[in-house]
Amino acid sequence: MGANVQKNKIDVKKIDRIIKGYDKSEESLLAILQDFQRAFQYVPEEGMKRLSRAMGVPESKIYAMGTFYKALSLKPRGKHTCKVCMGTACHLKGAGQILETIERELKVKRNSTTEDGLFTVESVNCVGACAMAPVVVVDESYAGHVRQSKVMDILDKYK
């Protein structure tokens, strides 16, 4: 975990506002957790506790969802998320080498965050833009036909 990642400043009002926006039913759990993820870049422990109380669902159950779904992360993320597609089309076109380059250059392992908290590097299985393989997605911006020798230029723009 990056040293500079701020963990403590969680706005509980924001948490409660998100929970209030939904019906008090189990059906809403995943959607609420996803909203937490979007609002805080991760699912804070406080959020799971409050959700458990508000919905009358055991905390363990909410935690189980947090670990099962890939879209949720229980650890704070870096400022930017860099997803390297490892889907079949991208794999065949050298995605593995692209991911290794990023790992080497940013000194970070896949599915973790850089020391300075700037990037969380993730491997994902197909981002649905296979015709442009290999694909790297930084935050919401897609880059296609990425070359190993050029991938750092894409990331440098976020530094």
Binding site: E26, E27, L30, M65, Y69, K70, A71, L72, N125
Partner: peptide, 20 residues
């Protein structure tokens, strides 16, 4: 929620119900 197995019919329904 970003889980491949949720494309499977019974898993998808559990997920819609707000479960794992």
């Amino acid at each position: 929620g970003g889980a491949f197995v949720c494309g499977e019919s019974s898993a998808l329904m559990r997920s819609l119900e707000g479960k794992v």
